[in-house]
């Protein structure tokens, strides 16, 4: 990789200031950013490490549900969200592998918005609120396409609020090489309705399967999905799966998620 300056702020305010410099970029767990820098696909002049900012770490429970600090590693979410939001904890515990989960963070994952990442499905299905150093963004407004989000330059995810559903489940079918989601479906049932978010499949990244949401809001059983098909148009086709195959997986995984929720 090209050389850069590493800055290690101790607070969000310091981090925001450090990110104001030309060519600066936030570094969270680095499990995606550093490999892409090795490939010389990214070449920031300055990396601002967010890992040692205490106010951005940890999981706590409050009236807005579960609050997860932006720099909380997956392993911590897997452990600390287990009691309150087991489906979210299970999702975190399936990302990558144990070593990746020690470093990779929820904020990093959501900021990157990889179309095959797991967290976007949880955030969208939970109707989460993404809190940054300067504002709050609803998940429905946050994801704006492949590797694209509502975040401005230098904006940092400090906390993510997850309303806790009555029932939920994440079903992930792994891409055999990368172990990212070939398709991942997060189903969450709230008092006011069911939300179904799909990752790994959409050419524009994570999306909601609204037909399934309507059917499941009326009747939260796998049988309610009978006959619903996903349009393969707009789905990813690559050497790991055709759009038609992904469309099938969405239906199958949604059904299984409902059964297991």
């Amino acid at each position: 990789m090209h050389d850069f300056e590493l800055v290690k702020p101790a607070s969000v305010a310091e981090a925001v200031a450090a990110l104001a410099a030309e060519g600066a970029q936030a570094l969270s767990g680095g499990q995606t950013l550093l490999p892409s820098m090795k490939q010389r696909l990214a070449a920031p002049d300055r990396l601002v490490s967010l890992l040692d900012i205490p106010e951005m770490r940890g999981v706590c429970h409050g009236d807005r549900g579960l609050a997860v600090g932006g720099a909380t590693p997956h392993a911590v979410v897997a452990r600390e969200a287990a009691a309150r939001y087991p489906a979210l904890a299970a999702l975190a515990g399936q990302i990558g592998d144990p070593a990746v989960r020690s470093r990779g963070t929820i904020g990093g994952s959501l900021a990157n918005n990889d179309p095959a990442a797991c967290y976007p499905a949880a955030a969208l299905a939970s109707g989460a609120t993404i809190v940054t150093d300067r504002r709050e963004i609803a998940a429905d407004d946050y994801f704006q396409g492949l590797f694209t989000t509502a975040l401005d330059e230098g904006e940092i995810i400090t906390t993510v609020h997850f309303p806790i559903p009555e029932r939920a489940c994440y079903m992930k079918f792994e891409q055999p090489a990368s172990r990212f989601a070939l398709v991942g479906v997060f189903v969450a049932k709230y008092a006011d309705g069911v939300r179904v978010a799909v990752t790994g499949a959409g050419e524009d990244g994570v999306f909601r399967w609204t037909d399934a949401e309507d059917a499941l809001t009326a009747d939260f059983r796998p049988e309610a999905l009978q006959g619903l098909v996903v349009d393969a148009d707009g789905l990813i086709g690559d050497l790991h799966g055709t759009p038609a195959y992904r469309a099938n997986l969405i239906a199958v995984l949604t059904k299984r998620a409902v059964a297991a929720a």
Binding site: L6, K8, L27, G30, Q31, L34, P35, L47, S49, L51, A75, P98, A99, V100, S102, R103
Partner: peptide
Amino acid sequence: TVHVDGQPVKSCTVLAQD
């Protein structure tokens, strides 16, 4: 893979200064 503060990490994807 090495351990940092007892946790496994992939040392090729961690900055030394970090």
